[in-house]
């Protein structure tokens, strides 16, 4: 498609510059896309394995916890856990990879997981809580990794759109327009020349 421009030398020069920039941008974006893809592919399997591992161990812990809960009675467990001494918060730092901002979580933990006396609760509950306490650290790594994959996927999608827009739309359009303008200018040149020759002929006859 030809852009809607006047066929002048100035316009031609401008479009040539634009084409140059577009080609360069296209190359850069393509490189970015490749690198993002590489990053993403290297993480997929890792995330998947981690997710499966965590899911199975979490489910086992949860089951034993709920079992102990039914053994002791709901009210008892709720009472035991009504005032947890453990406090947890997370420090968020950002890391930039290929212009994608990613969170890095650092846990800040204080207190003890067992916040109750051992008298009224069962051993299974203690065990499942302690196990969960260990697991929660890996849950944060998982949170970080999954977010990273999501953000990368998003960025790849965006970059791909840009690359395609440049490759299949803007660059061909600019090339067509350049061709159009050069042709038009050459045509004008020729018509000018013939007109001059014609005028000269007429002048000579008189």
């Amino acid at each position: 498609m030809i852009l809607n421009v006047n066929a002048t030398r100035m316009e031609l020069q401008r479009i040539r510059k634009r084409l140059k920039i577009a080609v360069r941008g296209h190359k850069l974006l393509k490189d970015k896309q490749d690198e993002l893809m590489r990053q993403m592919l290297s993480q997929i399997n890792e995330v998947k394995e981690k997710r499966m591992e965590i899911e199975s161990s979490f489910q086992a812990i949860l089951q034993s916890f709920v079992l102990s809960q039914s053994e002791l009675g709901r009210a008892q467990v709720e009472e035991a856990l009504s005032l947890p001494t453990k406090k947890m918060s997370v420090d968020v730092e950002t890391k930039t990879v290929m212009s994608v901002k990613m969170p890095v979580f650092k846990m800040a933990v204080s207190g003890n997981i067992i916040s109750y006396g051992y008298l009224n609760t069962s051993g299974e509950m203690d065990v499942s809580l302690i196990e969960f306490d260990k697991l929660i650290v890996t849950l944060f790594t998982l949170a970080e990794m999954e977010k990273r994959v999501q953000l990368l996927a998003d960025e790849i999608d965006k970059t791909r759109r840009r690359v395609n827009a440049l490759e299949y739309k803007l660059i061909p359009n600019l090339q067509d327009t350049i061709k159009f303008i050069t042709m038009k200018l050459a045509e004008m040149e020729r018509s000018n020349l013939t007109r001059l020759m014609k005028v000269k002929d007429i002048v000579r006859e008189h």
């Binding site: 812990i61 949860l62 916890f65 709920v66 809960q69 467990v77 709720e78 856990l81 947890p84 453990k86 406090k87 947890m88 918060s89 997370v90 420090d91 968020v92 730092e93 800040a108 933990v109 207190g111 997981i113 916040s115 499942s128 809580l129 969960f132 306490d133 929660i136």
Partner: peptide, 24 residues
């Protein structure tokens, strides 16, 4: 760097275990 909170949403039974580790 900012410090942020952690939350959990879900069924009551599952929430107890999260409460124990200090998650809101």
């Amino acid at each position: 760097m900012t410090t942020a909170k952690i939350g959990a949403i879900g069924e009551n039974d599952v929430m107890l275990i999260f409460k124990a580790v200090g998650v809101e």
